[in-house]
Design a protein around this nucleic acid. Structure first.
Length: 170
DNA sequence: CGTTTTTGACCCGCGC
DNA sequence: GCGCGGGTCAAAAACG
């Protein structure tokens, strides 16, 4: 079982500052990896390892390389309920993900997205959810273990740091 | 034209 | 059994 949480504060703004990037607190949110019950989906009951990594990443306008397209939302606006239409909740961890679902969450105004690793037999799933408490925080829950190397080139520093933090906790 | 996203439907477990 | 909340499927649309 591996519960791993990274908290990137909201004002962790400039993409080059790595100082605030390492907040590791391990929450216990034991996500029972209930084996999937879809029988028509071939080997849906893969060996889901018991690791669940959480990754809280603040909504940072320029934190991640390409998918961070934030329009307005000044960093100091503590206003609630303003429209944060940024795509920053796609935290790219180097793997290739395919989205297969999205559901509205009860306590959150924001939907939760479901992704699956697109590697041939790698059935690692993850779900990305934004906290409505403070919308600058995005929770990414991983389920399963990858059995293949990372495909993409982690070109920027924060990705490398993230990977280091994840792998050093295993 | 192949891959990914979107989105409504479907399924399942649980509480009442 | 029924409704609700959450997870997944799958067809169509969108994308590159």
């Amino acid at each position: 079982m591996l519960n791993f949480v990274e908290v990137f504060p909201y004002n962790f703004s400039s993409s080059t500052s790595l100082t605030a990037a390492s907040f590791n607190l391990s929450l216990n949110l034991m996500k029972d990896n209930s084996n999937t019950t879809y029988s028509d989906y071939n080997n849906s009951h893969n060996q889901l390892e018991d690791d669940t990594e959480l990754e809280l990443v603040g909504k940072n306008p320029k934190c991640s390389s390409h998918e961070a397209v934030v329009d307005d939302v000044p960093p100091t606006s503590s206003g609630f309920g303003n429209s944060t239409r940024s795509q920053v909740d796609i935290i790219d961890d180097g793997y290739r993900w395919r989205k297969y679902g999205q559901k509205a969450v009860k306590n959150s105004k924001f939907p939760r997205s479901y992704y699956r690793c697109t590697y041939q037999d790698c059935n690692v799933k993850k779900q990305v959810q934004r906290l409505s408490k403070d919308e600058g925080v995005v929770v990414t829950t991983y389920e399963g273990t990858h059995s293949h190397p990372i495909e993409k080139s982690t070109d920027n520093f924060e990705h490398i740091l993230t990977q280091m933090q994840i792998y050093s906790s295993c």
